[in-house]
Amino acid sequence: MSVVTETFDAILFDMDGTLVDSTEGVIGAWNAFKITYPHLVVEAARFEQEIVNSSRKDGKEGIVALPGVRGITESLLSSEDSRNRWALCTSATRVYATAALQIAGIPTPNNFIAAEDVHNGKPAPDPYVEGAKLCGVDPKRCLVVEDAPAGIYSGQAAGCKTLAVITSHTREVMIQAKPDYLVRNLSR
């Protein structure tokens, strides 16, 4: 891993574990669902809604922006050109992702790929290929920012450079995915 010295035409972000920490909501949702039927699509949507509902119950902190995210998103919103040069590419549904960003105080980007926007999710390249298209750039000129090996593999398969953040997996697990760059979080 080295210092990023390249320039990119667009940045494609994952959401959970990369931009936001939804741990409190996830724990609450698992407690509410007791792991009944997490493999069913309908139950998965209900589970995501419960994450939002549980995120602030009982004095919990809620879904929060991870370190460095506010500075990066403020920078990306500083001009019309940069507003169109980043995308959210998440495996979450659009409803959940929009709510999570709002709760965390992160602006919803102009370019947004959610689970229902692609036929094949991560680790397939589809989310990041589509994100690059929305930004109007070649995936080879994009930097994917991810917290999970499946997302790193997805970015690599799309032809993007990858930046792994160590927020939800260990450093060793993320190194095994062979990202181009590795940082603790986006404050680096």
Score class of each variant (00 low, 15 high):
His169Asp: 00
Val26Arg: 12
Trp86Asp: 02
Glu116His: 13
Ser187Asp: 14
Asp21Cys: 05
Cys160Phe: 03
Leu134Glu: 03
Val129His: 08
Lys161Tyr: 04
Ile35Pro: 00
Ala100Leu: 10
Thr23Lys: 14
Ser187Val: 00
Tyr153Val: 00
Ala104Gly: 09
Thr98Gln: 11
Phe33Ser: 09
Cys135Trp: 11
Arg46Glu: 08
Ile35Ser: 07
Arg94Gly: 02
Pro139Asn: 04
Ser79Gln: 13
Leu186Ile: 08
Lys161Arg: 15
Thr23Cys: 06
Ala10Leu: 09
Ser154Lys: 13
Phe112His: 12
Leu12His: 09
His119Asn: 06
Thr5Asp: 07
Ala158Gln: 12
Asn120Arg: 15
Val165Leu: 06
Gly136Gln: 12
Asn110Thr: 10
Val52Phe: 03
Leu134Phe: 00
Asp9Ile: 04
Ile113Met: 02
Leu77Ser: 14
Leu182Pro: 15
Asp117Thr: 07
Tyr153Asn: 14
Gly17Arg: 13
Asn111Glu: 04
Phe47Pro: 10
Met1Ser: 10
Ile166Val: 13
Thr162Ser: 02
Phe47Thr: 05
Asp147Leu: 00
Gly155Cys: 09
Phe112Asn: 06
Asp21Phe: 02
Asn31Arg: 09
Arg188Leu: 00
Thr108Trp: 00
Asp16Ile: 04
Ser22Glu: 12
Ala132Pro: 06
Thr23Gly: 04
Thr18Pro: 10
Leu88Cys: 04
His169Val: 01
Val118Met: 07
Thr18Tyr: 03
Arg171Met: 01
Ser82Phe: 10
Ser2Arg: 15
Pro38Phe: 01
Gly159Glu: 09
Glu146Asn: 03
Ile106Tyr: 09
Glu146Gln: 03
Gly59Asp: 10
Asp147Asn: 06
Thr7Trp: 05
Leu12Ala: 05
Ser187Tyr: 00
Gln156His: 12
Ala148Gln: 04
Glu50Ser: 14
Gly121Asn: 10
Ile106Asn: 09
Ile35His: 11
Arg188Gly: 12
Phe8Ile: 03
Pro107Glu: 11
Val64Glu: 04
Thr93Leu: 03
Asp126Gln: 14
Tyr153Trp: 14
Glu80Gln: 14
Thr18Trp: 01
Ser55Met: 04
Thr36Trp: 02
Met15Trp: 11
Arg94Ala: 06
Leu186Met: 14
Leu182Cys: 14
Leu186Ala: 08
Leu88Thr: 02
Glu24Ala: 15
Ser187Lys: 14
Ala100Pro: 08
Thr5Val: 05
Cys135Tyr: 11
Ile63Leu: 05
Thr170Cys: 12
Thr73Trp: 01
Ser154Glu: 08
Leu163Glu: 03
Ala45Tyr: 13
Leu77Cys: 11
Ile27Glu: 10
Leu76Asn: 11
Arg94Leu: 08
Val20Ser: 07
Tyr181Ala: 01
Lys57Gly: 00
Ser78Met: 05
Gly105Thr: 12
Thr36Gly: 00
Pro38Ala: 01
Ser168Lys: 15
Pro107Leu: 04
Lys60Ile: 02
Leu182His: 14
Glu116Ile: 00
Thr18Glu: 03
Gln49Gly: 12
